[in-house]
Nucleic acid binder design. Structure first.
Lengths: 221, 221
DNA sequence: AGTTTTATGGAGTTGACACTCCAAAACTGT
DNA sequence: ACAGTTTTGGAGTGTCAACTCCATAAAACT
């Protein structure tokens, strides 16, 4: 993707990340743009960034090259849109649970949701943004920044939920809810990676359950 | 550094995965082969599989194309050798600790080793095999099989250490040591991924500490 | 020494793939 | 209706990277 030559040229002036997102498109344009992002997201989820060709995206979205480059400056730009899209998707799917992630029962339901999801996928795909992170974190600073934000958007509601449990006195006052929220995200990412590799949900289940068990040790009464 | 005693463990009767590893090379040949693997391992660790070009490997190893293709049938074959090499390296670095991972003190030292290592690397690189797993698990069945073995080779000594603690009566009889060993590996992988992305060792530290804390809840007296 | 096997040099080939270009169609606002 | 803008078609283009080929050097074997 980002070649060292073109990258260096841009990096020289400012750290402006030529994004096409603030441009104004017509309704029809927005739709085409969305179709491209959807197609790219599916392909990237299935095959990773590097193995997803622009032509593949074109075919799947049913658009021409000029359309794609009308809405995105280059592949990096498209990938950044995919990251944002996948983050939105993750939040959306978990929204009802995430917002009320402040009881042990809700946490268990959230755990079940995640495990079931991987089961349905037959353990294929890992985390939509975690797998992108593994591929780009060290080589694409812009993407990394977006990925940090994505993880933060994901972690925040978990952190908030545990904090509410603490506030309500359901957790001991000395509970480090921020650490436990982070530990949940860590277990989720590690669990998804190993589950994907082993094609078996045990790592995801065990990872999440272990952190949840640790959380329960802080339960009051 | 254990020499390229490449894995004959996974003798695949199923699909002939054209590997060049069982061929006979001269001492000089083995050396050249090793140099290629070393170079490839470094590049893959830094940039991932897809972004590592054969020509890059040639340059870094100081070999010609014909040499590389004399020792490896194709890029996939080389990558498989890299996976084996990295697994050996991981085990070697942690060997002294891994073999005696049967006290809380040893577990803490192991945790410190891992965190310090990432600190030294300024959080770059993630896990040498975890990052390959994220990239290849879903798209290269042969690589996936090797990666499963790699993780198993890693997990086994952890599992064994916890089992010894159980045997010695240092953990309550109902302790699921296999689950906790797996949880440690999960926390490690997730922690490394998030640490790499955030450029901050907190996720790795918190992930491992949370699982270790859970382990301590099973401690006897 | 002579023969076979192994190791290396290096130019060449092939295909994939990110990206470009220009013209035409479709839309928008006045 | 007319001008300006956005959207689309589709054929390039240039580069890069994986892989090949054949000749030669070096080593191993007997």
């Amino acid at each position: 993707m980002s070649d060292s030559t073109s990258e260096a040229a841009v990096a020289g002036t400012t750290s402006q990340r030529r994004t096409s997102s603030e441009r104004r498109f017509t309704a029809k344009g927005q739709l085409t743009r969305s179709r491209i992002i959807d197609a790219a997201a599916e392909l990237v989820f299935a095959h990773g960034v590097a193995r997803t060709g622009i032509e593949d995206v074109q075919r799947r979205a049913g658009v021409s090259a000029s359309q794609l480059y009308h809405y995105f400056t280059d592949k990096d730009d498209l990938i950044r849109a995919v990251i944002a899209h996948q983050t939105d998707g993750i939040i959306a799917v978990q929204q009802p649970l995430l917002d009320q992630l402040d009881t042990f029962e809700a946490l268990e339901r959230w755990r079940d949701l995640l495990v079931d999801l991987q089961e349905q996928r037959h353990c294929a795909g890992g985390c939509p943004i975690g797998s992108i992170a593994a591929e780009l974190a060290d080589n694409d600073p812009d993407a990394r920044a977006d990925l940090v934000d994505s993880f933060e958007r994901w972690e925040a509601p978990i952190r908030a939920g545990l904090a509410r449990m603490l506030d309500r006195g359901e957790l001991r006052p000395d509970t480090d809810t921020d650490a436990l929220a982070l530990a949940l995200l860590v277990a989720l990412q590690g669990g998804l990676l190993l589950t994907q590799t082993r094609r078996n949900t045990a790592p995801l289940r065990v990872g999440l359950d272990t952190v949840l068990a640790q959380l329960r040790t802080y339960a009051v009464e």
